[in-house]
Write a protein that binds this DNA or RNA. Structure first.
Length: 907
DNA sequence: GCGAATGAAAG
DNA sequence: CTTTCATTCGC
């Protein structure tokens, strides 16, 4: 590998020297970063860079460190990946859902489904994604001014040698020069006004904001758990109004650029971040430090440092605090404030802190060894026992069922975790409030491996690696310090969540565990590394958490974007768990939005932990940047499948990747560079976070919704593509039938149907409904604007469609498509009818279709007689099946989707 | 590595 | 118009 990389690098360098072009892009910082983190322990050495292959590689290409500044710029560029378009965002956001529904379905199949969903998706919803994509792109461009999408021509030019490059990021960023300018562009943010993310809504605030709130408010607020999400926030009015991110951005911007703030405020956070990052690069090392010093976060960080030492004590204190209430907190608060001032005075403090932290980190890290870790846990447990012997026992005994534990116990456990957890970087606080606990090592390794593989394979260029590593190194050093804090933070978050969860969703947990999917999945994650004991321990927690996490995602999704108050766009229908139902009830008052939950959690956390710890955690989180993003990503993935999540987590974070362009550049001294990198990293991380937030804020739709919609979609597609196909092929009739089926379904319950299904699932709580625009869906198809690659689609749609049925869902069609499809149809019908019809009478279905037809002339035309016939046939079948209920594969999963039938078959 | 999807961008 | 490439991850 190395050798190859080097070679590549060389080539790259040579090229680079001439043209920077192609360095490649390594894109994923996140991966690298994670890797680094993993290595971090080792990494310190890296700083020296003496030998490590990695280092060489990095240097070779990017070299930015030594070489320079310019390179740095490039490196970031290289790193940068082209921004995802709306569809990709959508896919990213919903793929997990699809996978959940169709576990067996491979990505391809999932993609197809996603495409269907996308097609069906309301314009309104699409617009959200489109806007997001645009924003993302704009921010990206800002960050990477020179970025070129496709260097198509480049290949030949560039790579003299590099076979590798072909694909990955050929495009080189144009010139470094552009980077220099980055800041000025800030104003541009205007373009992206739409961003949801821009919203300052406290409720919607992302994890960061929550963290911030937690840090600051936590101090003040005794217990979040009891209180509503954010009562406490009052402490920092500003925060309320503006999202923490924004503020943070502003702060940073101020530091770097005084004028910006007002504009920035208006501008999207993403832009701001981008600007910041760019500015950072420009400025050079020193700024970062200042920023840190100035920013509240920095102060917090300092606090954290102090707190770290205190951790052990803190746990105890926390306990006491809980009992006492805010008093202690207030006390601490005052201290903290003082401290903060002190810190402000000392800008240098930050560095000191970092150094200080390192040692702590090391200590913490040691736990990595399972033994140590266990010991720590044991200690914690012991402590817990001290407090609540009974509860502790439960935990130990019942790993799976945390839910039972009373909040109190849970909190205790969480606390413990916090203190001990340091080893686990991976714990992420999900904005949604979901926490995933994973073994750091496990996660990291897999990720690393994958990344390496990918990178290596891709090889975008050795350069990529090199650059990332470099960044990583720096990060590591800094991060390492931070890590401890991070852990604490995460732990806190977990604890908070845990508490909430306990209170709110004990059922779910149990259920999920029982279901086995969740549990199994959770277990799986460690696949690559199974660290065993830790996992087990963490697992207990994790399992619950992770399980919970899934549902929340859904919820979050729906809620986050539209304002909490508004209609929850997303349907929550999670296939997996009825348990979900439980959640909604728990959150009745709140809007479902995750954010709100998160806030609560954060608050709770704060209350539990000492203020210091919270702050520290926040700071670290911020610092960690990537960490958060990665964590989130992991969480998301975890949702999908706990197991997979681990391995893939890192990759998941989009934020890390794109944004990280470190501009570090310039500062001559390595230190500065490092700092810069860090800063840039942070900046990038921030950007990432913002994106993540936004991304998370994007509405997720329940599969059901899509399914329903899907029905409509097929029509459309068929219209475009099918028309011909149908006419052309009778054999394809099967395909047509399929569509017809869908159509049929749709006709049955255009939009409303969704609810019924949900109800079936028994989720009254989620009244969510579809705030989405399902209603629109019925509108058929009329115009679908064929997009650029219409042709391509058309072709694919025609063919694929058929294939799809065969492939994707249906087991290998093997036999004639016709036969299977029919069977499937039969199966489907019953289920579908049940699901859809629950409220409305299924029997009406026949009639309904007709009614629908009139509405949609075009559709009717397509379907024509044949369609009707099919429908009729389906009915018959359906009836028959009804009599004989299928297996109750039940579960909501299948129910939701008409197409699901196939999935059922699989099962 | 390929592939399934969509979309943006570049040629 | 066509080609690239972004994300995902099983095969």
């Amino acid at each position: 590998m190395k050798g190859s990389n080097r070679n590549k690098d060389h080539s790259a360098e040579g090229e680079g020297a001439g043209k920077r072009p192609k360095r490649k892009c390594l894109q994923w910082h996140p991966l690298l970063a994670k890797k680094l983190l993993d290595f971090s322990e080792e990494e310190e050495e890296d700083e020296e860079e003496e030998d490590i292959d990695k280092v060489q590689l990095l240097e070779a290409d990017g070299l930015e460190q030594d070489v320079g500044e310019t390179e740095d710029d490039e490196s970031p560029e290289q790193r940068a990946r082209r921004p995802m378009n709306a569809f990709l965002l959508f896919c990213k956001r919903h793929r997990s859902l699809v996978r959940q529904e169709h576990p067996r379905l491979d990505n391809r199949g999932a993609t197809k489904i996603l495409a269907d969903w996308w097609a069906v998706l309301d314009p309104k919803e699409k617009q959200k994604y489109t806007d997001m994509a645009k924003e993302y792109k704009d921010a990206f461009m800002k960050a990477n001014p020179g970025y070129r999408w496709c260097p198509t021509t480049n290949k030949p030019v560039k790579s003299p040698t590099p076979t590798v490059n072909p694909r990955k990021k050929l495009w080189a960023f144009p010139s470094d020069s552009s980077r220099d300018l980055p800041t000025p562009k800030k104003a541009k943010t205007e373009e992206i006004p739409q961003l949801n993310f821009g919203m300052a809504d406290p409720t919607q605030m992302g994890g960061l904001s929550m963290l911030l709130l937690a840090g600051e408010h936590a101090l003040g607020t005794p217990e979040a758990s009891t209180g509503p999400c954010r009562p406490d926030i009052s402490e920092s009015p500003e925060l309320r109004q503006k999202s923490p991110l924004f503020q943070f951005a502003e702060i940073s911007s101020r530091t770097s650029q005084p004028d910006g703030p007002s504009k920035q405020c208006q501008a999207s956070a993403l832009f701001q971040f981008a600007e910041i990052s760019s500015s950072t690069s420009q400025l050079g090392g020193p700024e970062p430090v200042k920023r840190c010093g100035n920013s509240a976060l920095f102060q917090l960080a300092e606090m954290c440092l102090a707190s770290e030492g205190m951790k052990m004590d803190e746990t105890k204190l926390i306990k006491s605090k809980e009992s006492d209430g805010g008093r202690i907190k207030e006390m601490e608060k005052g201290k903290e404030e003082r401290d903060i001032k002190m810190e402000k005075n000392n800008e240098a403090g930050f560095q000191k802190e970092a150094e200080f932290e390192k040692p702590s980190k090391e200590n913490i890290r040691e736990p990595k060894d399972l033994k140590n870790f266990e010991e720590l846990q044991m200690d914690n447990v012991m402590a817990i026992k001290m407090e609540d012997p009974k509860e502790v026992r439960k935990e130990s005994e019942d790993d799976q069922k945390y839910s039972h534990f009373p909040d109190f116990s849970y909190s205790a456990s969480s606390k413990i975790i916090i203190s001990d957890v340091p080893s686990r970087k991976e714990h992420m606080c999900h904005p949604h409030g979901i926490m995933i606990i994973e073994d750091p090592t496990a996660l990291n390794k897999p990720e690393k491996i994958k990344k390496k593989k990918k990178k290596n394979k891709l090889d975008r260029h050795g350069n990529d690696k090199s650059t990332p590593k470099k960044t990583c190194k720096k990060r590591q050093s800094s991060e390492s310090d931070i890590e401890s804090v991070m852990y604490t933070i995460e732990a806190v978050a977990k604890g908070d969540w845990g508490v909430d969860k306990l209170g709110e969703t004990p059922r779910k947990k149990v259920r999920t565990s029982s279901s086995g999917k969740g549990g199994i999945l959770d277990v799986k994650p460690p696949k690559k590394k199974v660290k065993s004991k830790e996992k087990k321990v963490s697992k207990e927690k994790c399992s619950d958490i992770t399980k919970e996490s899934r549902p929340p995602d859904f919820l979050n999704i729906s809620a986050s974007k539209n304002a909490p108050g508004e209609v929850p766009e997303g349907m929550k229908a999670e296939p997996l768990t009825p348990t979900e139902d439980a959640l909604p009830p728990s959150l009745p008052g709140q809007t479902k939005p995750e954010d709100s939950d998160c806030h609560r959690k954060t608050e709770t956390c704060g209350s539990r932990k000492s203020e210091r710890s919270c702050k520290g955690a926040l700071y670290k989180t911020l610092v960690s940047e990537g960490m958060l993003t990665s964590l989130r990503a992991n969480v998301d993935r975890g949702k999908r499948s706990s197991g997979k999540g681990n391995s893939s987590d890192h990759e998941g974070c989009w934020s890390e990747e794109s944004w990280t362009f470190n501009q570090s550049g310039t500062s001559g001294s390595k230190k500065f560079k490092k700092k810069l990198r860090e800063d840039s990293f942070l900046g990038s991380a921030k950007l990432d976070e913002e994106f993540e937030k936004k991304f998370n804020s994007l509405p997720q739709y329940s599969p059901l919704t899509f399914d329903r919609k899907c029905v409509s979609i097929p029509r459309k597609k068929k219209k475009t593509g099918n028309m011909s196909s149908e006419s052309t092929k009778t054999s394809k009739g099967s395909g047509d039938k399929w569509s017809h089926k869908q159509f049929f379904l749709d006709s049955i319950h255009p939009t409303e149907a969704i609810f019924p299904e949900d109800k079936n699932t028994a989720e009254p709580a989620y009244k969510v409904k579809n705030a989405l625009s399902i209603p629109n869906t019925p509108e058929p198809a009329m115009q679908e604007p064929l997009v650029g690659s219409q042709k391509r689609k058309a072709r694919k749609t025609k063919i694929t469609h058929l294939v799809r049925t065969a492939d994707g869902r249906v087991s290998p069609a093997g036999g004639t498509l016709d036969d299977k499809p029919k069977e499937q149809l039969q199966r489907r019908l019953p289920k579908v009818t049940e699901a859809y019809c629950s409220d409305d009478c299924s029997h009406n279905t026949i009639e309904e279709p007709r009614s629908n037809t009139p509405e949609m002339p075009a559709v009717s035309a397509f379907f024509s007689l044949a369609a009707l016939a099919e429908v009729a046939a389906m009915e018959n079948v359906h009836r028959g099946q009804r009599s004989t209920p299928l297996t109750h594969d039940g579960q909501p999963k299948e129910m939701p989707q008409a197409p699901v039938l196939i999935s059922c078959a699989d099962q």
